[in-house]
Nucleic acid binder design. Sequence first.
DNA 1: AATGAATGAGAGTTCATTCAT
DNA 2: AATGAATGAACTCTCATTCAT
Lengths: 207, 207, 207, 207
Amino acid sequence: MTRASTRKPGEAGGDDQAAVPRRLLEHATKLFAKKGFDRTSVQEIVEAAGVTKGAMYHYFGSKDDLLYEIYARVLREQTRQLESVASSSAPLRERLAAAASDVVVSSIDNLDDNTIFLQSMHQLSPDKQKAVRAERRKYHERFRGLVEEGQESGEFRTDKPADVVVDFFFGSVHHLGSWYRRGGTLSARQVGDHYADLLLDALRPPG
Amino acid sequence: MTRASTRKPGEAGGDDQAAVPRRLLEHATKLFAKKGFDRTSVQEIVEAAGVTKGAMYHYFGSKDDLLYEIYARVLREQTRQLESVASSSAPLRERLAAAASDVVVSSIDNLDDNTIFLQSMHQLSPDKQKAVRAERRKYHERFRGLVEEGQESGEFRTDKPADVVVDFFFGSVHHLGSWYRRGGTLSARQVGDHYADLLLDALRPPG
Amino acid sequence: MTRASTRKPGEAGGDDQAAVPRRLLEHATKLFAKKGFDRTSVQEIVEAAGVTKGAMYHYFGSKDDLLYEIYARVLREQTRQLESVASSSAPLRERLAAAASDVVVSSIDNLDDNTIFLQSMHQLSPDKQKAVRAERRKYHERFRGLVEEGQESGEFRTDKPADVVVDFFFGSVHHLGSWYRRGGTLSARQVGDHYADLLLDALRPPG
Amino acid sequence: MTRASTRKPGEAGGDDQAAVPRRLLEHATKLFAKKGFDRTSVQEIVEAAGVTKGAMYHYFGSKDDLLYEIYARVLREQTRQLESVASSSAPLRERLAAAASDVVVSSIDNLDDNTIFLQSMHQLSPDKQKAVRAERRKYHERFRGLVEEGQESGEFRTDKPADVVVDFFFGSVHHLGSWYRRGGTLSARQVGDHYADLLLDALRPPG
DNA sequence: AATGAATGAGAGTTCATTCAT
DNA sequence: AATGAATGAACTCTCATTCAT
């Protein structure tokens, strides 16, 4: 549906020489995060990116496509990261802590994407929403697998359903954008470690 | 065409005899939750409520106002509830557990309002956003007060800043709408108790 | 069509006790002059006058009526004034000079009415426009009579049609509102005398 | 539905092939003059011009802009004309007479623009009003310069402030639209010459 | 005499998208 | 690969007026 990937732009260029599709995605991300998807016009996006509407419609089938691409990119990256951490040979608690902390750090590093995720998903067309949800479910399931692993081994409490715990945790993660401010007292990693601790300690078998 | 005027406003009836402003708020809430604020037209709202546009603008200054009223109503109710629980004479842990469980239950009971809160606040006018944020901050502070009380008494861990814990928890609460489905295996109260347990156990002093 | 005159309010009262119709006309005049007829809503008028819409529609059949009443009042007064000056026993030149100077002074005294006249007449309904035009034509004709009297007696030049001269002069008068500012260097009477001089001197037989 | 795109824009044709912006201005001018700015809807304008609303907003930022463009065009032309006459080498009285007569003729030739000027300027946005006023002031000042030149040389009376004389005269000019009818007994040039005579004779030193 | 809720038509403007070039 | 004129539908909001009370 999108023709964005028919031409790999290479890594060349500072900013205005960057490939047009990439520039469009970048500026669209910023604008969607700042004003919301519906409040951002295609005109604003192409102006910010320094191209014309025609160019945009050459690369993307619709405004929707732009949003979808942003989602897809984030999901791909987070899934990749989780997979790499979860399948390492470290002890379970360390793997879960790393996964939790990492997703916090990457969410903070890409606060814009995070904000968009939160606010704009329901503005996608139903088809695309379904695709995104499916991808996200896979991510959640992988994460939940770690929790269940610990429950089976007896390291984690078993009186809380694993999926409740996972939803509990990802709610917190998705909301980082509504309170975390860069330049505050806490670094992304510090927040990540706090969140990981809270998760792991909440999972300790009850006293 | 509208049956609004056949009854004295202010006095509730079944549905279509209910006061016009109330009917408007009801239907606006449903629609905003389902389609998002921007995707819901005033036309749709007034049609659903069975009144004319003019009537709506007679009671509400703008579409924005409708959203704002929805927020204000929810905030008022939640603040009232928290205040009542937090100031009881029960032991701290019980008060915090009740507050946490209650906010989950009430969020589930009003999933629509919750969803709107999450998705549409940034679409309010700056003034109104400020007002809402101020009210919400007060709510958070009251809740945080409970956490700090426990940290001072030694019941709760002190290695996690109270506001991080509060944001952690309310992220989870705000996200209920994205996964909780009525008629599933868990009742609202069960989720509330799980969440309260997770919070309280995460607050136990570390091993 | 208007019911304004069915009850004579008497001269009693400062402002808020003044009769409702009079208060409405006063504030309508100010607002029409400031913002134009179309840009002034009935709501604004009644708010300024401190009454409700229902009250306004009780006294005036429509917004149009309000404007018409303003016109009628001005026209009546100006016609009265001209008649009184024109029919005096003074020499013709003095009578014309007085008429010219007086209409300038009264136009300046009621700059608002003047402005409205200029800008809003074409916004009246056709019927009322016709009525106003007829009244104004009568006024012009009386004034033109003075010019013709002088032309017949040989005091004034005859190479300029009297009606061209009259239109020439009243154009100037109607435009006072676009440049005259109270508190400037010239009093209303000074401007009136300048205008009268210019008119009379323009009428001198050519050298 | 529209035939606008069958021709290259910018190149004039008969009427419906003329460039879209020009067609819009033409029809807007007629309608504004006939019904007033506020009483003319964008819908009417685009229908008269045979284009769609979207097309209009492609070329003009707002309805206001349309009005502003009409003003700007008139002002530009009148300023150009005045400049050309005023700076010729003819004797002062001839230059002033020509300027006065010309502005009358051009006002009659463009009675619509003139009417609009008179009635609708105060409906422009404040910014644009300021721009128009500034331009008009320049025009008036140039004209006043001619009067002052004659006062200094002793050709004209000095007992009347030059700006009062100029405002007196332009009031008359702006009002042409309220009485002049094409096809009447007087040609535009005849009126122009009458007005110029009246102005110049009014300026003769008093007897 | 006066209220104010309600109407309903229409206002100006925005915008994603298309298409000839 | 890219332009930008043009579309057409939808949008929020305003307003003079009516009418039951």
